[in-house]
Every structure is written in C-alpha cells, then in structure tokens.
Design a protein around this nucleic acid. Structure first.
Lengths: 143, 143
DNA sequence: GTGTTGATATTCACCGATAAACATTCGCTC
DNA sequence: GAGCGAATGTTTATCGGTGAATATCAACAC
C-alpha cells in the first residue's frame, strides 16, 4: 500500500527521484499514465494489469468510455528506475500534469500519483474541498 | 482501550516519545493520519487494514470518492517505534497539527490523538466549549 | 531522606536520500 | 565524419532521518 506525500523536484532533463518508500512497492519496472484531475498515475505491474482488464471491459459504444480508454492507453509509458532510483517523465506527461519544477508525489493505496506542486495545493485548498464531507465519509468508515 | 492525556515535547528532528502506557496497545508498527480539528489520529495496524480494504473498493470514477481516498492516504504515514520508543512525525503532519514543540497525546478509546498543546488548550477552553451542550447532543445519539 | 528504577528530554554523530551540476554515450542530421 | 541533442550515467553537496549516549525527572521502596 502506498501512503504519504513527498515533495520533490524534477531535474533539467525531466527526471525525478522516486521516494525511497515507494521503490519496493513499484518494483524495477512499472507503468505511468495520464491520470484524472491533472495528475499522473503510477501503477506497479500487477495493478496495471488489473486496471487494463477493467478498461478493456468498457463498452466501445459509450462515448465517455472511449475517451477514458484513449486517455489511459495513449498516455501510458513503461518506466524503469535508473541506477539512482530516478525515472524519466516524457514531455507529453509533464505537460498533462503541468509539471515545471516542483512536484508532489503521493501514495494513494494501490497507486502512486504525481502532481505539480501548485496543482496539488489548489486541489487540497481548504476553500475548495469540503472537510465536512470528508468527515461524513469517515463516519461511514466507522472512524 | 486508550485513556489519559500526556504532555510531551517533540525533539529537533521531529520525533516524539510515545507514552509508555500506549505502547503495548499500538504495537511495534502503527499508522498516523491527519485527523479532524487539527489533530493527528493514530491507529493500530488491524484497524488500519480495515480502512484500507474499504477504500480500495471505492470507484475511481467518482470525484468525491477520489478526493477522499487521496487525502486519506496521502495524509497517512506508517510509524515504527525506534529503539527508544519514539516515532518520527513527518513535516506535513506536524504542519497539519500546528505542532512546534509542546504537544498533548491523548487516549480516545479505540485510537490515540496527538495535538499541539496550544490547540488542545484552545479546544478544551471552558469559555469555548460547553460540556452541557455536548451532553445535550449526545442524547440525540442515544447515549 | 536516600537510593533505585523507569520514563522522558536533549544532544551528537553517522548514514542514506535527494538536489544539482557535470560527463558520457548514442543516434540523428547535415 | 562533424556537430548536435536527447538520454543516461557520475559526482558532489546538503539535508533529514536514525541510532546511540547522556541528562533530567518522577515515582517508588527502603
């Protein structure tokens, strides 16, 4: 399970250090794709297969489903950690997530997400997000 | 069951001593998350697994669910007692709870909470809080 | 009151992780 | 083949996390 948030920087060549806590979970080879809400999704091999299966099951006739499938498959790339534990983020994905220099890498259970720092702050802005609603969800979980 | 309150200090590296009374209940490894009201929640491993399982099942396509899962996982961290019974509180969690130096660790039945001392005093200030009023609401909950 | 024990506080030193700059290789174009 | 840029590798500096050692304090027993 991936949890926690880590603020890293991207270097001039478009590489980022994968937080050491995520390395064992992601393994040597994993998958990176355009995600929802201007983020990038990062799946370990096993989770990627599950995700693939789900996408394949979507109806070709549904317009939204078609867009969904295109976004994920077309945006996907296979990543390999280099000798220093870094990965290269392709230009297209950097643009999708608006990543310039500072970014936030977060663990979201079964996947890892990469956000431009600014986007993440906007997303988690207390004015934008309803903590009451969150509290609501928490009580459903019995917290 | 966790009960009692303990006033501790955090060291320069962001570590705190876990009160010895809580150690056996929390075990060697447990989980810490951003809680409500500027506090931090501390869950033993077993309870954490239950949340994880529930959250894993939430749909990726639902915006609210996505947000909740992100905040919950990103705001969490795994803690392990070091050789002296201390844990490290990550920067982000310290900021969430406004913890600078003095803090209060309280037992709340099934979980442990960590507060900045100042926040705790503000929260429990008799001028701010009416126990009668709280008791009133409790009766609505059937207690 | 004194000594003992266990718990918490504080400091220091070391190691690993990350940041940033620089070097090398490879493939491409001209 | 020369020059170029993208990708990959190497090196160094810095910072934060981790463990060890020591100091302080409170509770308790005698």
């Amino acid at each position: 399970m991936f949890i926690g948030e880590y603020q890293h920087n991207i270097d001039k060549k478009g590489r980022i250090n994968v937080p050491s806590k995520f390395r064992s979970g992601l393994g040597e080879r994993f998958y990176l794709t355009k995600g929802l809400d201007q983020s990038l999704f990062c799946f370990p091999e096993g989770e990627w297969r599950i995700f693939e299966e789900k996408l394949k099951g979507l109806p070709l006739t549904n317009k939204n489903a078609r867009g969904f499938v295109r976004l994920f498959f077309a945006g996907a790339t296979e990543c390999e950690l280099d000798t220093q534990g870094r990965i290269l983020i392709p230009q297209a994905l950097r643009e999708h997530a608006n990543i310039d220099r500072e970014l936030m890498i977060i663990g979201v259970g079964t996947r890892v997400e990469i956000w431009a720092l600014e986007e993440w702050h906007r997303y988690t802005d207390p004015d934008q997000i309803s903590y009451d609603e969150i509290a609501e969800h928490m009580s459903e979980l019995g917290i």
